[in-house]
Write a protein that binds this DNA or RNA. Sequence first.
DNA 1: AATACAATATTACGACCATCATATTAATTT
DNA 2: AAATTAATATGATGGTCGTAATATTGTATT
Lengths: 179, 179
Amino acid sequence: MSERKSETRKRILAAAGRVLAERGPGDPAVAEVMAEAGLTVGGFYAHFASKDALMLEAFRLLLRVRRERLAQVDQSLTGRERRVLLAAFYLSRRHRDDNDERCPLPSSLAEIARLPDGFRQTLAEHIELMTAQMSGAPEEGDVALADLALMIGGLALARALGPGELSDRVLRAAKSAVV
Amino acid sequence: MSERKSETRKRILAAAGRVLAERGPGDPAVAEVMAEAGLTVGGFYAHFASKDALMLEAFRLLLRVRRERLAQVDQSLTGRERRVLLAAFYLSRRHRDDNDERCPLPSSLAEIARLPDGFRQTLAEHIELMTAQMSGAPEEGDVALADLALMIGGLALARALGPGELSDRVLRAAKSAVV
DNA sequence: AATACAATATTACGACCATCATATTAATTT
DNA sequence: AAATTAATATGATGGTCGTAATATTGTATT
């Protein structure tokens, strides 16, 4: 595989990641993803075996990048401090409204039950790794799990409500409920 | 409108509610809803103006029924007691796995941003009414809001993970995090 | 310059979808 | 029994989708 081809592959993957994070793995059409990557639909199957394969790889990549970013916070912080810090970003209006760097979970969770098994496995692995990073000791695992649910639910709710007073209140309320 | 026709209308509405609660308003096809109601697709547009109109009405109805059910719990309970009781049901394995009486929010939230405005308004109204029912005093509004986010996120996550150990842990962790 | 590879535009297939129409049968009402 | 209304089966329309093939143009490498 040439340099050029693998670069194009990455472009498609990044484009898929952007639309996936906004609308989930199912809704965006292949042609739309290719257009987002500045390409046409013609050569898609030279790069990926199917739409599902593309979306699964994009999903995996998005989650891995997000974990790597979280891993870079100061290691001297306690578990709780890490969770509060994460929630401050995760439940910000920025993260609700912005197009870039979105967490794909709020838009994807509902679909995952109807998608190939790899999606579920990827999700499960992500949840385990995230809770590990969000807790100082193993006993904190359950509060980390609950905080994850709170953050995902809060963001999903705030996004569904759209920008506005009630949506802002959801974000604030969820932030101050972090354990 | 005859008795028979309005009965049929209700059947369609109930069928739509069932599939909506499981898969959201967008995914199920009109023909599938009609089949679920024991009918064929032919006469659908004699009852509803469009698929969106049907799904919006089904959505509204589902949420209203859920609020009415919550309103029947003992009025002498404190806000916190009501929230714990609600969470015990909402975050049960029953509610995760069963087909009947599902909360439609985990499956619908992500789509609402891309649906007609009525969905968003219906959601906003539901959230306000729910938090009011879930709090004893107005100052409790924000913890009720956070608990809602926690419950919806926890259930969405548990459903995406499918039955299993991790999924069960999510439910338990979220339940014990209710404020 | 020649060769190999990648992206292009275009077109097609078969499947599904929402929506609508039609002609027929069944049920209800008068 | 007659008249009205509802549900039926069936199929058409026009759209979108995933997937695939083709022939052409452009780019890289040798």
